[in-house]
Simulated assay, not measured.
Amino acid sequence: MYSFTELWAMDLIQHIESKIKLNAGECAVINAAFKKEFYPKGTNLVQPDNRSPKIYFVEEGLIRLYYINRDGKDITHFFFGENNFTMSVENVYFNNPDPYGREVLEDSTLRIIHYKEFTDLFDKITAFRTFSFLVTIDMLKRFSDRLFSLQFQTAEQRYKIFTDNYPNILLRAPLGHIASYLGITQQTLSVIRGKK
């Protein structure tokens, strides 16, 4: 299973080759299709309710997926660290605005591709379709685990699972974002941390 941040960052091709076999020509095609861009900490890649068809791969850095609730409060939905993809499912599959924004929490190096160009790679490289399927299944599992956590676990249990699985996020993301991700107040998070 992927983590928010692997023990080491891989570039895009290393990451893909850790899941599927590619020849040098296929690697070159994929490498050319994904543009490399640098974003400084604090950059908003997209605002909530966007229509961005872009797919992002984090080579280095940390991205926060967030939404604005009915009260106008900013809520962290997910974190994406090194070796992770993020994209708008609402946009690319349903042609709806994406309710989530994406913010860069650290200086980050991203590989970016338009969804249409991404799917064009399926026709050029058969194994790339398999890779896409593996990434999709991984994301479904992660979001399913998150939903289960919010519905059935206590704040202390959510915090323990978070720190067990993603300890470096505590060092990289503001506590307010972590608290909202866990579905608790920052004060509650401080109390839980104080007990540890």
Score class of each variant (00 low, 15 high):
115 Y>C: 05
101 G>W: 12
120 D>L: 09
116 K>L: 09
108 S>M: 08
131 F>C: 00
102 R>K: 08
126 T>R: 12
119 T>S: 07
104 V>M: 02
101 G>Q: 15
101 G>I: 15
118 F>Q: 09
128 F>A: 08
116 K>V: 11
115 Y>S: 13
132 S>I: 00
129 R>G: 01
114 H>E: 15
101 G>Y: 14
122 F>I: 08
119 T>I: 13
115 Y>M: 10
102 R>M: 10
120 D>E: 14
116 K>C: 06
101 G>E: 15
129 R>K: 14
127 A>K: 10
128 F>M: 05
120 D>H: 06
127 A>Y: 06
107 D>F: 05
120 D>W: 03
122 F>R: 12
105 L>V: 02
102 R>Q: 14
107 D>P: 02
123 D>K: 13
123 D>N: 11
132 S>N: 11
100 Y>K: 08
119 T>K: 09
126 T>I: 12
107 D>N: 08
122 F>Q: 07
106 E>P: 01
111 R>F: 02
118 F>G: 05
136 T>I: 00
120 D>V: 06
112 I>K: 04
127 A>Q: 14
121 L>F: 02
136 T>L: 03
106 E>C: 04
131 F>Q: 00
134 L>H: 14
136 T>V: 01
100 Y>W: 12
124 K>N: 05
102 R>L: 07
110 L>G: 02
127 A>F: 04
107 D>R: 04
100 Y>E: 13
103 E>P: 13
121 L>R: 01
115 Y>I: 07
120 D>I: 01
103 E>F: 09
108 S>N: 10
117 E>H: 09
117 E>G: 12
119 T>M: 09
112 I>S: 04
124 K>T: 07
134 L>V: 12
109 T>N: 06
101 G>H: 11
100 Y>H: 14
113 I>Y: 04
105 L>R: 10
133 F>T: 10
134 L>E: 11
131 F>W: 01
116 K>P: 03
133 F>L: 12
131 F>P: 00
108 S>Y: 06
119 T>P: 04
113 I>R: 04
104 V>P: 06
113 I>W: 04
113 I>Q: 07
126 T>Q: 15
119 T>A: 11
102 R>S: 13
122 F>S: 06
133 F>Q: 11
101 G>R: 13
135 V>C: 00
126 T>H: 14
119 T>L: 03
108 S>V: 03
102 R>C: 02
125 I>R: 02
108 S>K: 06
103 E>Q: 12
134 L>P: 00
112 I>T: 07
120 D>F: 09
119 T>Q: 09
123 D>R: 09
104 V>S: 05
135 V>A: 00
118 F>E: 13
130 T>I: 13
130 T>F: 06
134 L>C: 07
127 A>L: 05
132 S>M: 01
132 S>F: 15
132 S>D: 15
114 H>T: 10
122 F>M: 04
119 T>F: 04
133 F>I: 08
104 V>H: 01
126 T>F: 11
130 T>N: 13
110 L>I: 05
119 T>W: 11
118 F>S: 06
124 K>S: 03
126 T>M: 12
129 R>A: 13
128 F>K: 05
103 E>A: 15
115 Y>N: 07
111 R>N: 07
121 L>H: 02
124 K>V: 13
106 E>A: 10
123 D>L: 15
100 Y>P: 07
132 S>R: 05
124 K>E: 12
132 S>K: 04
134 L>S: 14
118 F>Y: 14
134 L>K: 10
118 F>R: 13
126 T>N: 15
105 L>M: 09
136 T>C: 00
